[in-house]
Amino acid sequence: MKPNPSATATPAFPEAGLPERLGPPDPLDAAQQAAADALINGPRGGIYGPFRPLLHRPPLLQAIARVGETLRFEGRLDTALREWTICVVAREASNVFEWDMHLPLAEAAGVPPAALAAVERGAPTPADLRSDLALARLVVRELLTGHRLSEETYGRSLSAWGEPETVELLTLVGYFAMVCWLMNVARTPGPQSRGG
Rank of each mutant, 00 (worst) to 15 (best):
M1L: 13
L28R: 02
L116S: 07
V88Q: 07
G17N: 04
L81I: 04
Q33L: 11
V139E: 01
K2D: 15
R21F: 03
G75L: 03
M101L: 07
Q62L: 09
E107K: 07
E20Y: 05
K2A: 15
G45Y: 05
P19F: 13
P112D: 07
R187H: 15
V88C: 15
E83R: 02
V119H: 02
E98S: 02
T8Q: 12
A127W: 06
E163W: 11
A9I: 07
P3V: 07
A177F: 12
L144E: 14
R66D: 14
E152C: 10
E83F: 12
P3H: 13
T171N: 12
L22C: 08
E83K: 05
V185A: 15
E142M: 06
R156M: 04
S193R: 15
E165Y: 03
P53D: 07
M178I: 02
H102K: 01
L169H: 00
T85V: 01
I86P: 01
V173L: 01
E142C: 11
S157N: 05
E142R: 03
P19K: 12
S6I: 11
G110T: 06
A90Q: 09
P43Q: 02
F73I: 00
A108P: 01
D128Y: 11
A63F: 07
V140E: 08
A31D: 13
Y175S: 00
L39S: 02
H147G: 09
P50D: 04
R66G: 09
P191G: 01
T85F: 06
F51Q: 05
E165G: 02
A16Q: 14
G155S: 13
L61G: 00
S159P: 00
G162M: 03
E15Q: 13
R194I: 03
V89T: 05
A127I: 04
G17E: 05
E20P: 05
A31I: 04
M1H: 11
S159F: 01
S94H: 14
P112M: 07
D100N: 08
A160L: 12
A127R: 10
G45R: 08
S6F: 10
E163V: 07
W84I: 06
P124H: 03
P59E: 05
A186F: 06
W161R: 05
R141K: 09
L71V: 12
L54D: 08
T171I: 05
A108W: 02
E83C: 12
P53S: 03
R76C: 11
G122R: 01
Q192D: 12
A34C: 00
L116Y: 06
V167W: 04
P104E: 04
E15S: 12
Q62H: 00
G146S: 15
D128R: 11
E142P: 09
R187T: 12
R130Q: 15
E83Y: 09
E92N: 11
V88D: 13
R82A: 07
R66L: 15
H56M: 00
A93P: 00
R57D: 12
D132R: 07
A115R: 08
L54E: 09
A127Q: 13
A186H: 10
V173P: 10
V167I: 13
T70C: 14
E92Q: 14
H147N: 13
P104T: 06
V89C: 02
P112K: 08
P112Y: 01
M1D: 12
L39E: 14
E69Y: 08
T85A: 04
S94P: 05
L55V: 09
Y175H: 15
P53A: 00
L143V: 14
P58A: 08
E15L: 10
R72L: 04
T79N: 09
A117G: 10
C87F: 03
A117I: 13
T171E: 07
